[in-house]
């Protein structure tokens, strides 16, 4: 009996082995390699033989005003974009609780921007918002008074708009699926008692979906904070460093200035900052499996 139990343990272990090897080789090893490198002065010309400089990269990083302002930009962006996208996603999901002709096709068309790669979405908008040839910039110029939507005055709003088009459908579909789980009888009973649509939303729908709401919110917040591909394609962080998110800052450090040591220090600090909310999210997510 005991050997059978031991056997089972071994089988369970062997089944996990391939994935574990992959994770160790391509996730754990690179992370440790990067952590080590963050204590070295490692540039393109001495990458084979970098010199150890202790915590100097970290000291330089946290006294670098560009890093601080990129963190601030990302934080602001994450809060504003997440707020807008959660609000719109919930409202549209709520709208979709009603039946109307063509609902299936409408759902597909709302989800369409979600499967477009953020980088392609960015490249697309770089063209469509172009100051001289962009058709959408032209259409919007009635509202904004200028077609320079990627200039300083409008670029932040433009990026938030583009990101909303790209990512809000994710919130919509999460919230829509969640609302499907709201007990229909309860809503009907409330209608009988004379509750209006807003009362039903506040007192029945929102409490039922609050758990999924929380998870979606936090995941959206983390994702927005790390925004990279969309900005990389639309403005590459410009004009100047005006839309430099923290991911763009790190990317520039590593692949334009080839200051790998400092870029590793920055990405490692970022990972540490995000570790607590991420762990919380993982715990909430895996709880349901037990």
């Amino acid at each position: 009996m005991k050997s059978l139990k031991k056997n089972k343990k071994l089988t369970g272990f062997l089944l996990l082995l391939p994935l574990t090897i992959w994770l160790v080789a391509f996730a754990l090893y690179p992370i440790l390699y990067g952590l080590r490198l963050s204590f070295f002065n490692a540039r393109i010309n001495n990458i084979d033989n970098p010199n150890f400089i202790g915590f100097q990269n970290y000291v330089k990083l946290f006294s670098n005003s560009e890093f601080a302002s990129s963190l601030l930009w990302s934080l602001k962006f994450a809060l504003i974009a997440t707020f807008i996208q959660m609000l719109l996603g919930i409202l549209i999901a709520w709208l979709f609780q009603r039946d109307f002709p063509g609902k299936g096709l409408a759902t597909t068309l709302i989800l369409l921007p979600m499967v477009v790669a953020p980088f392609l979405m960015g490249t697309m908008f770089r063209l469509l918002f172009n100051e001289s040839v962009g058709p959408i910039a032209y259409l919007l110029s009635g509202l904004t008074g200028t077609t320079a939507l990627l200039g300083m005055a409008w670029v932040n709003q433009t990026i938030i708009g583009a990101d909303t088009i790209n990512r809000m459908p994710f919130v919509f579909i999460n919230m829509y699926s969640a609302m499907q789980g709201v007990p229909q009888e309860l809503l009907e009973a409330a209608t009988m008692d004379g509750a209006n649509a807003v009362q039903k939303l506040v007192h029945i729908t929102i409490p039922t979906i609050s758990s999924i709401f929380g998870i979606t919110f936090l995941e959206k917040l983390l994702q927005s904070f790390l925004i990279f591909e969309l900005i990389s394609a639309m403005t590459a962080g410009g004009p100047g460093t005006f839309t430099q998110s923290v991911s763009i800052f790190i990317y520039r450090r590593a692949f334009q200035r080839s200051d790998y040591g400092m870029a590793c220090a920055a990405s490692f600090s970022l990972a540490l900052i995000l570790l607590v909310p991420s762990l919380y999210l993982v715990r909430r997510n895996t709880k349901g499996d037990k």
């Binding site: 996990l16 994935l19 574990t20 994770l23 391509f26 996730a27 690179p30 992370i31 390699y33 990067g34 490198l37 990458i47 995941e219 983390l222 790390l226 990279f228 991911s247 790190i250 990317y251 590593a254 692949f255 790998y260 870029a263 590793c264 990405s267 490692f268 970022l270 990972a271 995000l274 991420s278 762990l279 999210l281 993982v282 997510n285 895996t286 499996d289």
Partner: peptide
Amino acid sequence: ILGSTMLLRLAPALAFAIPVFL
């Protein structure tokens, strides 16, 4: 393993990208 993969999904991709490139 499940926890690590989920953490991986949320971690900043650049923390892997730079060492992986090298």
